[in-house]
Write a protein that binds this DNA or RNA. Structure first.
Lengths: 245, 245
DNA sequence: TTGAATTTTGGTGAAAATCACTATAATTAA
DNA sequence: TTAATTATAGTGATTTTCACCAAAATTCAA
């Protein structure tokens, strides 16, 4: 046990003042076309006017970070089913050109959130000014600020989460076929990540998908069973290490 | 593609102003006594004067978040070998009582970092005022702010990291016996997490530990081989999913 | 209408991994 | 010199993984 100074302002080292923004990395899977998409907005104002960027907002008085993340999401798209979690905080000095320009010299901090939304219901909202669009992950342009870095970080998180947690079932419909789950995994993780037959058996052995017995025909071939995610059966597995693929 | 508003101040919803702090969850393993420890400091000033808390600091002008984390670490202890990564950002309104008291109404945001340091070399530094001490994880007192929550979050991350990444070798000496690795894992993950013999074979099969051939006697019993972590052999495995236990 | 194509479902079996347990070697302790 | 201790190297039953196969139930197309 030793005596230490309490953190406090040092005359030679003034504290930084911050504006805090929330930037969302919003993913969605267009299952019809097997495309993994990210939502981007076109900036109207400087800095980086006319550049595409992650949808973001500055945090308001009395607003929690997660509320701000939800707000920016609901301003851009209409969604009911989604997964959202905090991603990472980027706060290096100089990451926002406004820091140099503005007289008061505030730093701009970005707390990023990562979201996965159900594509079929994610209707892009029309608003005054600015554009919102889905971009294929292979065709992301140069983005404003350090947003390419943030997006890549989010993509990594997406793949990890998909392999170790049941986020897929947050954006699948209530009733789904096993092939729909498989297509979702393929689209996000890349084509040849696993054999379909083995994927099925591994997934079913986890024990939280229940067969409704209802059969549906999706085009040609034998009709598939509709399954549902059984939250009760999953609950006891929540804190155990699970591999979903 | 639709038209959306750019994020900007709304007259009815003024932006929050922030002070940004960095709080460190610093773990260490006292291998001699098989104890998992967390570093805490005693606060001198309000709020929460005389409460124990995570070592933290407010971010200075021109200082990156990670630099601030390193600074607070090096003010409390003298370490050369450590693992450090960002943990989570806590920014709910009302998490710091100063928000209510101070006239300018700044929010207090905490970007937390998680560190694991080598216990043998982690000398507690003596400074003017304030106390620094290692606490066993089972004996953490009520902490200032939301620091108990942050610490628990850090403990979870510690166990996950230990199982999926080689952070153990960041805090082990350059040369170590397999038993020393095993004791480290036992202390952090709990006694009966695995059989020693099977732990050895699994760990060696990963292929990044090289036997130096040097034998050492640690008390009674047959002398053990000293191993070293082979960074080159590990490099190609860096981005692959690995299980270390 | 009828066979081909397609898709689901439920396998099989070889290879690999897991895991409780055993045996032997090399040292210290007494 | 013997016992205790620890490191190391297995062994073998069980489970998991994984490439592959086959039947069932449908659509598609001639």
């Amino acid at each position: 046990m030793s005596y230490n100074p309490q953190p406090q302002p040092h005359p030679k080292h003034p504290l930084a003042e911050f504006k805090v923004g929330v930037d969302n990395v919003i993913f969605s899977v267009d299952t019809a076309n097997n495309r993994l998409l990210a939502l981007l907005v076109k900036r109207l104002q400087d800095p980086f006017a006319n550049s595409w960027s992650l949808p973001g907002t500055l945090v308001r008085e009395g607003e929690s970070l997660e509320d701000a993340a939800h707000r920016i999401l609901s301003e851009k798209i209409k969604v009911e089913n989604l997964y959202l979690e905090q991603l990472y905080t980027f706060g290096n000095p100089g990451r926002d050109p406004r820091e140099a320009k503005e007289s008061f010299g505030d730093r701009y901090l970005s707390v990023s959130y990562f979201a996965l939304v159900r594509f079929e219901e994610a209707e892009l909202l029309f608003n005054q000014g600015g554009m919102t669009a889905w971009f294929m992950l292979q065709k992301i342009p140069q983005l404003a600020f350090d947003h390419n870095k943030i997006l890549n970080y989010g993509y990594q998180r997406l793949r990890n989460k998909l392999e170790y947690s049941p986020i897929a079932f947050d954006v699948l419909p209530d009733l789904f076929t096993l092939n729909e789950v498989y297509q979702l995994y393929c689209t996000i993780l890349g084509e040849n990540f696993s054999d379909y037959s083995n994927f099925r058996t591994r997934l079913l052995k986890l024990g939280f998908l229940s067969d409704t017995g209802i059969k549906v025909s999706r085009g040609a071939g034998r009709p598939a069973s509709l399954y549902r995610f059984d939250a009760e059966a999953f609950a006891p597995l929540k804190n155990k290490p699970l591999v979903f693929i």
